[in-house]
């Protein structure tokens, strides 16, 4: 049957290799994602503040 110890051996090897690779990849690219996310949020907060100031000036 396909579900013998060789199947589980190959799956375990795949897990260790994939998990090690994705951890390194996510560590590098995830840090960039966080940087980008906060840059966009800061921009949005600045825009919201400007809109509020424009509204107050008009009033």
């Amino acid at each position: 049957h396909i579900l013998d110890h060789w199947f589980w051996f190959l799956l375990t090897a795949a897990c260790v290799i994939w998990y090690s690779t994705i951890t390194v990849y996510v560590a590098i690219c995830g840090a960039k994602d966080i940087k980008g996310m906060f840059a966009r949020l800061a921009d949005r907060q600045k825009q919201d503040a400007n809109t509020l100031n424009d509204g107050n000036r008009y009033k």
Binding site: Y25, V26, G30, G36, M37, L41
Partner: peptide, 13 residues
């Protein structure tokens, strides 16, 4: 929902 600004790798983590 984090301002819906989450990208792929941060999402995976």
């Amino acid at each position: 929902v984090a301002g819906r600004e989450m990208n792929v790798y941060l999402g995976i983590a």
